[in-house]
């Protein structure tokens, strides 16, 4: 147990609609090890952002965490007092948001936004200018950004500023919810490289959420693939890459476009992206899966272990793999 940084147990998260409550994350269990980069991937609407917010307990109405536990440092985040939760945020457990471009207060200089963060956690800002300089250096920003307003910075610089703020107080665990959305590939690549360096240097545990498989496989130690709010496959990066056990992961990897290679062999997915059919008894991926058979629509598959710490949720494995 000591090696796990975060334990997610039976997490259920959903959204309130006008008439009822629809469950998005169903009975989610996951254990994240200390000092790893854990990648969570899924398509739009698969519930990955909801999951990120739920782990951080920042789901806002109409979203709602129905039940479950997130154990961090022997405490359940879901049951913490609001003020205790506030205190561990940014200091022990931090969050780098999606659309980090707009995450800074537009009418305040960056310096004072750093100061505000320090004040919020009871630290005197004047004595900690060194700390701010150090963290800016880490994300390779010039100190002059402190005297700028957010709109005077480029997207990449704002992104780096947000990362610097999130790790200023040396958190042990950081959740990154698609932190490079909206940046061009080059900037994205540099930021990820820096993040990885920081992570290795300080042994931060990172939970990295993305829809970009290339990034995911580049940066993560372990990966969980999410479809319709549940894990369909998870394991170490190399296992996931070389021995896919679930058709979803397999097809996604197979269909990554490569320059100069004709796209003739693409196996198209049928149907529409996951739409959370709640009362469907079978596999959520059934309709879109090219390998599905009648039995797939009848029984909901459990998570099974393939090899050491490599799990999949498919009743037709390894049969289906013989057909490709």
């Amino acid at each position: 147990m000591d090696s796990s940084a975060i334990e997610i147990k039976n997490l259920n998260v959903g959204y309130n609609t006008e008439t009822d409550f629809s469950l998005i994350i169903k009975n989610f269990n996951l254990s994240i090890k200390k000092g790893e980069i854990f990648g969570i991937a899924g398509e739009s609407g698969s519930g990955k952002s909801t999951l990120a917010q739920a782990i951080y307990r920042s789901v806002k109405y109409p979203g709602e965490i129905e039940s479950g536990e997130v154990i961090f440092k022997d405490k359940d985040i879901m049951k913490m007092e609001a003020n205790d939760l506030r205190k561990i945020r940014a200091t022990l457990f931090s969050f780098i948001p999606q659309a980090a471009m707009n995450a800074l207060n537009p009418v305040r200089k960056i310096r004072y936004q750093f100061y505000d963060l320090l004040i919020a956690h009871g630290i005197l800002p004047e004595k900690n200018n060194d700390k701010i300089s150090a963290v800016l250096k880490m994300v390779r920003l010039n100190e002059s950004v402190l005297d700028n307003y957010p709109h005077e910075l480029s997207g990449g610089m704002r992104q780096r500023t947000v990362i610097a703020m999130s790790i200023l107080l040396n958190p042990e665990v950081v959740i990154l919810d698609e932190p490079t959305t909206g940046l061009d590939v080059l900037v994205e690549h540099e930021i990820l490289k820096d993040l990885k360096n920081i992570q290795r240097k300080y042994g931060i545990t990172m939970i990295f959420i993305t829809h970009d498989l290339a990034i995911l496989y580049e940066i993560s130690d372990r990966i969980a693939m999410i479809y319709a709010g549940e894990i369909v496959e998870f394991g170490a990066r190399d296992d996931m890459l070389e021995n896919s056990t679930h058709p979803y992961n397999f097809l996604l990897l197979k269909n990554i476009p490569r320059i100069g290679v004709k796209m003739d062999n693409i196996i198209k997915l049928k149907g529409n992206p996951s739409n959370f059919k709640e009362n469907f008894p079978g596999c959520q991926f059934y309709e879109r899966c090219p390998f599905s058979k009648g039995e797939c629509s009848e029984k909901h598959p459990d998570l099974r272990e393939y090899s050491n710490e490599h799990y999949y949720r498919c009743i037709r494995f390894p049969e289906w793999k013989q057909n490709v």
Partner: peptide, 22 residues
């Protein structure tokens, strides 16, 4: 977004209100 982020960084209530008000 910036209020959500302030909450995620554990800002105090009065700080968040003043950012929103400003």
């Amino acid at each position: 977004d910036f209020i959500n982020y302030s909450e995620n960084l554990g800002f105090k209530k009065y700080q968040i209100k003043s950012i929103a008000y400003r």
